[in-house]
Design a protein around this nucleic acid. Structure first.
Lengths: 209, 209, 209, 209
DNA sequence: CAATAACCGAGACGGTACGTCGTGTCTTACT
DNA sequence: AGTAAGACACGACGTACCGTCTCGGTTATTG
């Protein structure tokens, strides 16, 4: 006995869906996440409130989907245009240090892109208080990026550039953790030099060799 | 031209202040930060709403002060009771690795203490979206703890256990960043073993020696 | 440029409207007009505050409509039940004095009816301080009743029972004014005998004949 | 056992008292009675709130005293300056009609004086809802004026200009009632001509002679 | 090829909380 | 002891959104 029949997604309006994504992303940048409201999204998107409530349980879920869609959009553009490897593969030049520094610098640039900053930060914050959002945030947004490091570190281990007993999934946090903290909590400047140093310290340790 | 004259803090009711702190901390644990309301705090504290609005601009600011007060309370108890003054000094046994692991384990335990978890996590999340809260959060809560590591690392450098060219304020993030990320974003289990590994990787690097 | 588009009155809830009227009339009798609050009306009516603010600008306006509705209700009952339609016609027995006395006595009785007294008095008082309420009060409640006297006095003039040069709209105030004052300002007892005397004085003057 | 000892009026500050009167009268004209607040009076008068609460139970009581004081002031000026009879005596020229018309016209002028209108109207309205204010309003403000008519009508009765069986206290309401109603409820224009007609109708009746 | 069901825009509804204002009481420091 | 000042507990204000609920008006199958 289905008390609340699920909506029929085949009849869903793609037009409305994208208008909602656009409105959500615009508004979160304009007014901030805490002043973002479902009513404002609906109004800006020219959509009834019910159309939002029918498909998403909360403003966080809307924003998460909007941001995921944004990423999909970007990666379509990237793959048709040019060097599509970013986000899909970490380069393998044979020099781990150089490759890691390259990706870390690219990540830092992206985090500072004002187009992504507001919604991404909002999702990170929301994810800390709301387990549902948090789990999806980690699974869909964070972990895929981290797994690229795992892959690259495994290659480095095979090449003898990283010690075999090291656990890649932990090792990568030596730089992703600090970057995330500086970005989210603003505990210090987030620069390329900072990224480089993290990679160096992580690779060679802070104890004298 | 002062349009809104500041209240006279000499006539402030300490009774009300502490009732507000208690109520805020209780409620954030009970219902969560996003369902925490000024009205509920006022009601639980047996206080008028205006008394809250007179002294704080937002629920985040109340909670921050409440948590700060909680810390002050705890450190008074600690210093009068025993002499181990955690939070005030990192032990110096001569063995950096052991000392760091000790403090990291203690930090992990504290983060998992349900008494601190809810408010602390809420403040971290709020601080990401609200610059005022964020700045005070970092300055009053985060940075003092991090500076203890700076101090200890400087001693280690003098003792030749940490390379002289390493910048302590960055080095400490090799473990505090990952811990913060695992705690806040739940990207993985936060255990003593994990902490130990971070310290080891950070000290000796992940590249083979 | 309509900044605040008017609500769509076709979708208005009649259920809520009448619950609000009932609550307002009950409460004004129970606690008095100055302690009457929109919140209490909403709560008693089982209605959101916004539903009141959507349709009325103030508690006075609510009460005015409630009272107007009460009158409409009463006159529907009256016209379906008996045929004496008080409020719609002053009897014409051929004897002005008797007819006026009859209506004046009925008016006095009605003013003392506890069901009407509290709201009616409140509206009169509010109307004195608030021009919007005052104008509608006079137009919808007061003037229609007074016009019945105008009509009856014109008939009396044609019958030669009232001097032709007399202005009926002023003449009627000779008794309605005093009654209103005794009722509202409690300057003296409001009895049938008092009403009779007013009619007599007004008709024949206080100078000796 | 006196739980709330009455304040010692011998030590009362006359300075404050008059500042409060002035503030109350100014404010009621500026913002209207319903937006008149004790706090605003205290602030404008440069007085502590407690000083008002110590001596008066409500804003209505303050305004009533303020208005009574205003009248006392005016009558002192009048008596020292010029024809001090207004308010203290109705002229007796031997011609009742002329004398009544004179006083009625003066009353109408006074009611339209913007200095008196706002507070007087406010007191009338408040008096309808609040019995304490109402009783004092009638006793101190209204009735003394009406008694002057009683006095003058008695003289007229002795002179044979008013029928002996007429009750003066009721007769005077034939014109004071209508004037009060037109003034308070704005049911029509309040002019000298209107006042004259009321007096004529009252004296000679509206029935043909 | 109607009819009939789902989504859709719109927005009224019962609620909750907001942040502000005023109440009447109380306390403090001054005169 | 009265006073200016103003913090306090309290209650109501009028507003903003919440999430649910109709209400017509398009689609888009399906009997």
């Amino acid at each position: 006995m289905a008390t609340k029949s699920a909506p029929d997604s085949t009849r869903r309006s793609e037009r409305s869906r994208h208008a909602i994504y656009d409105a959500a992303l615009e508004l979160v940048s304009e007014v901030g996440y805490s002043k973002l409201t479902i009513e404002a999204i609906a109004s800006r998107a020219g959509v009834g409130k019910q159309t939002i409530y029918r498909w998403w349980p909360s403003k966080g879920a809307v924003l998460l989907d909007a941001f995921l869609d944004l990423g999909k959009q970007a990666s379509i553009e990237a793959s048709t245009e040019a060097g599509h490897e970013l986000e899909h593969e970490i380069p393998d030049s044979g020099d781990v240090e150089a490759d890691l520094k390259y990706v870390v610098r690219a990540t830092i640039d992206e985090l500072k892109n004002p187009k992504y900053d507001a919604p991404y930060r909002a999702l990170a914050a929301e994810g800390m208080l709301n387990d549902d959002i948090g789990a999806e945030y980690v699974e869909k947004l964070l972990e895929p990026g981290l797994q690229l490091y795992v892959k690259r570190l495994r290659i480095a281990q095979e090449a003898g550039q990283v010690a075999p007993e090291v656990e890649p999934r932990i090792a990568l946090e030596l730089w992703t953790g600090p970057i995330a903290q500086r970005w989210l909590q603003r505990t210090g400047p987030l620069t390329h030099e900072y990224g480089d140093k993290l990679v160096e310290y992580a690779l060679y340790g802070i104890a004298p060799r």
